[in-house]
Amino acid sequence: MAQMNMIQALNSALDVMLANDPNVLIFGEDVGYFGGVFRVTDGLQKKHGLTRCFDAPISEGGIIATAIGMGAYGLRPVPEIQFADYILPAYDQLVSEAARLRYRSGGEFSAPITVRSPYGGGIFGGQTHSQSPEAVFAHITGLKTVIPSNPYDAKGLLIASIECDDPVIFLEPKRLYNGPFDGRHDRQLRTWAGHAAGEVPEGHYTVPLGKAATVREGKDVTVIAYGTMVHVALGAIEESGIDAELIDLRSIVPLDIDAIVASVERTGRCVIVHEASRFGGFGGELSALVQERCFYRLKSPIERVAGWDTPYPHAFEWDYFVGPARIAAALNRAMEA
């Protein structure tokens, strides 16, 4: 075991996979010599060689198209898109190609690629360095979408994603790279040092895709979250005095429906939290699933806490970002009804 932040844990996962499998290779904007703008690929080119981790032209469509071609040939490319906000030029490649190649070719070809990309807010990154686009991938059948919330899971999930034979969108909550941010931006920030999930094995291990984690057990209400919101929700729960059960989905496709249903059946109440804007967000799908499967056990309406339906505004970072106060209010509404 070693103490790692999320950047080091992701770097370790890539390092392990480059060493284990000669078909794994990494490319993306500034990931080579420089090691990536968030340093996730730091040192990998030097250690594993120029052709294993290299810089790509600024062309997200080109990066994903070539990754698909390599994947079809038999490699396991792990392209990086520098910010999830910039993944959209590649959207057609992901939706029309990566997601369907296996289906339409009768299994002759497939695209076992893992697209890593930092996402999410809380960093004063403005409109194009803060967005949470998971719903536009979850909607596309044929793509898996993974979102870790701590260093241990990040490494295990990334290795599982690279070993997965389907295309995976691997969204990294950049606000959690250096510590478990609970939304209290005006307090002393914590790092991963001393956090149980900051203890990371150095070698190979996996965290399976499609298995949620129960972060906190509770009997009054089920809170479903992923990414940064796991920590914001945990902080809000602890301050609220409500005995909430907190589920970290870890991957939204595949979705651990059993864990969700089992918890809501027990608590009878459900609060869904995500950073992305509300309308058409993944919370809508979660809400529908809970309603369909747990309707007769529900004691109160399902609550959704999400980003406002506006672009991500620079000056209003903390008015937009889903913080503990809004989560606490939703918990109270769920409990009162």
Binding site: D85, G125, A315, F316
Partner: peptide
């Protein structure tokens, strides 16, 4: 009005089209 990152100006009367963070 606080909506955009620093330096991503917009100044129509000065012949300067709205900037965005995504390049190109």
């Amino acid at each position: 009005k606080g909506k955009q990152l620093p330096i991503l100006y917009s100044a129509r009367d000065y012949g300067f089209y709205s900037l965005s963070g995504n390049v190109g």
